[in-house]
Design a protein around this nucleic acid. Sequence first.
DNA 1: CAAGAATTTTAGAATCGTTCTAAATAACGA
DNA 2: TCGTTATTTAGAACGATTCTAAAATTCTTG
Lengths: 140, 140
Amino acid sequence: MRQKKVSAANVTVLERLRTAGLRPTRQRLALAKLLFARGHRHVSAEQLFNEAKGHRVDVSLATVYNALHDFTAKGLLREISIDSSSSYFDTNTGNHHHFYFERSGHLEDIDDNQVEIAALPEAPGGAEISRVDVIIRIRA
Amino acid sequence: MRQKKVSAANVTVLERLRTAGLRPTRQRLALAKLLFARGHRHVSAEQLFNEAKGHRVDVSLATVYNALHDFTAKGLLREISIDSSSSYFDTNTGNHHHFYFERSGHLEDIDDNQVEIAALPEAPGGAEISRVDVIIRIRA
DNA sequence: CAAGAATTTTAGAATCGTTCTAAATAACGA
DNA sequence: TCGTTATTTAGAACGATTCTAAAATTCTTG
């Protein structure tokens, strides 16, 4: 295989994978670069797969699923299921909420500090709350 | 077919269907009775299908799906997609929120007045908010 | 650097929930 | 009752996702 120049983005992504305890394989590096290149994103497996193809990144669909799940398990991504037809993966893993555009299926982040929850019920049996998701559905 | 005694529950359900503009067929009546017999519930299509079988209600799976969607379209049910693996239908159509038990996949209603949202962002472009869902995820 | 162990990738099959099809049946209104 | 319209149905089809088991790659150790 041809030797590839190690760019700054490459190094960063490589370190992120290593730190997360994931072997930085060619496929994971390429997918991580696509995912984390700029700003936060919401992608489905199929979307990422097609994007990879567009960038001449040769990966199988199974690998895209594996990578998305591995990244999620290691906290590099967060999985979102709003529409039952498919799952989305969010590169923003911090506290935040979502606008959901019902017509298009599009998702948009809402910063945590834009939503203020004044009262919440106790979790039954004093169970631990893993997180609170607020989804604002937009009909238009 | 054998003539069936028209019980009070029957009448109520029949009226609900008619009022909603749905023909009260044998199948829809039976499913509606199962759904609305007591308290609020969250059911998947498969669950309702099996429950019907258990009650000697002879319906096809396709009809269960049709009924659930028809009921939802007419406002008798609300559809919820939290776990991407399957959809749930909630007999509680009023304003309320949910506990979601990640381990079991179980859903539990939270009364609207138990959650107080003090601040919400504007919908982009002044779009109309169709509803706000709050999901409290319980890890335990 | 070589060799072995452990992990990852892959194509394609398999699975699962859901929707579609088109024909048979049932409900409605006149 | 009759014709019209809506509903039900079995089974095929579908789309997203997971599984399989073999091949390839990465890591570790010497």
